[in-house]
Design a protein around this nucleic acid. Structure first.
Lengths: 235, 235
DNA sequence: GCCCGCAAACTTGCATACAAAATGGCATAC
DNA sequence: GTATGCCATTTTGTATGCAAGTTTGCGGGC
């Protein structure tokens, strides 16, 4: 790119980090996809913003080719929209689409919870209780950011607990797809407490092995998250 | 490619067809994705087969670039697996993965049916009845191929009837993802008749606006499809 | 002042060239 | 005869050049 040919470039990328010894090897495109997807989900790249190939290429010091491939990957996953000869943009969503995604997420998470109640192993249950306990402490401490992190763990444990890789993947992807639009939902301490109370019902149902109750509790939980978000957005 | 520069190449592709006047314009990559995805779903490209870039490029008379982009699109959708520096292959699945996908499809279709019972418009309902009637005639005639086509229409109408674009898309993609593995399920006339009888219960529940009954009937239907497939595959 | 048309600049789409890694075959050592 | 390591071949990964399409802004006309 500037005279000196740097070795492989695959080793050095990885977000400016150091050497990564036993990594299975990833293409530039794969890493770019992760990086950009992360930026979108975290909100650094908000919906509607243009993803110009040359700009991204310069930022990551690669050519347009892997950038283009990364964008194609993101397009297929739904996080990015692309139209021919126009810059790809971070996916937007109408209110109706967002409501649809929330509804789908509610049902997917509900399914996961139901299966988790029937299938989680003892270690998985222990892990769920552990994170649930940690969440309780965070609620008392009133730390929304930390709550957000642990909350994601909580839900992820339940996704994995359904013991259905495909369903787990669908749910994770749906959550990621909604994330860019719902980044402000846990701002109030009131919601934190309420969220945790809802978790309590879910955990109990799972521990008791009551699939329907777990599914119902999760459905109510996600529904209330959606309501909180809709209220927030509405005014 | 061979001296004479052919105009745009975007117009002429499209599967050897003629001029396509009012088409919104699609990139080569997008068309290749459709073509390859179709070949995978239809079984022309069975699971495990390698998708060599140069070979595909030659077959479609394009360069490797759009082929690669098409493959990336397919990778993200799950129809194709790729590992660095290895040919991409049509996605395979273990028995466990396949079972998981069937389970997910069962739940997704069940959700669609439930919502459809509550939300389908009168024209949509009429369309469903129309296809259902056509299916009955095909069962009597004993035409598995035609049954397969109409059966897809039948289910697609219900997907659309849930009035949730995202859920519809998830369900369609899941069905496509399973298709390469379940292409031999409607070989017996007995299954045709049974399948149609199950449809009957679904249609009635939807027409009556009974969401739970519709969901349950659909769940039973997909479950029986899966059983038939598992039996077929098992021996 | 506003609208329309045109052209320049910019961005993406595709092709091609080259680099790097994996595969397969062959020779060699045991 | 088998295993192992090396080299040629093949295939993917990345960079770059050029063509085509879109956007934008300017100038002229109304």
């Amino acid at each position: 790119m500037d005279g000196v040919r740097r070795m492989t470039k695959l080793q050095e990328f990885a977000g400016g980090g150091g050497a990564r010894p036993a990594v299975p090897f990833k293409t530039l495109a794969a890493r770019l996809r992760e990086q950009i997807a992360d930026d979108i989900v975290r909100g650094a790249l908000p919906p509607g913003i243009a993803l110009e190939e040359l700009e991204l290429a310069k930022r990551f010091d690669v050519s347009r080719t892997p950038v283009r491939e990364a964008i194609r990957l993101l397009v297929a996953s739904g996080l990015v929209e692309a139209r021919p000869h126009r810059s790809a943009v971070v996916a937007r969503a109408t209110e109706a689409q967002l409501a649809g995604m929330f509804e789908a997420l509610r049902e997917l998470e509900s399914l996961c919870a139901g299966f988790a109640a029937e299938r989680m192993t003892a270690p998985e249950q222990a892990d769920l209780r552990r994170v649930h306990g940690a969440l309780q402490r965070v609620v008392r401490a009133g730390d929304p950011q930390r709550y957000h992190e642990l909350n994601e763990q909580f839900h992820s444990i339940i996704y994995a607990g359904c013991h259905n890789d495909y369903l787990e993947r669908l749910t994770i992807e749906t959550r990621a797809r909604i994330a860019p639009f719902s980044r402000a939902q846990f701002r109030t301490l009131g919601r934190l407490a309420r969220s945790h109370a809802e978790h309590e019902a879910i955990v109990r149902a799972i521990m008791d092995g009551k699939a329907e109750r777990a599914a119902g509790a999760m459905k109510a939980h996600i529904g209330s998250v959606h309501d909180a978000y809709a209220t927030y957005r509405g005014g």
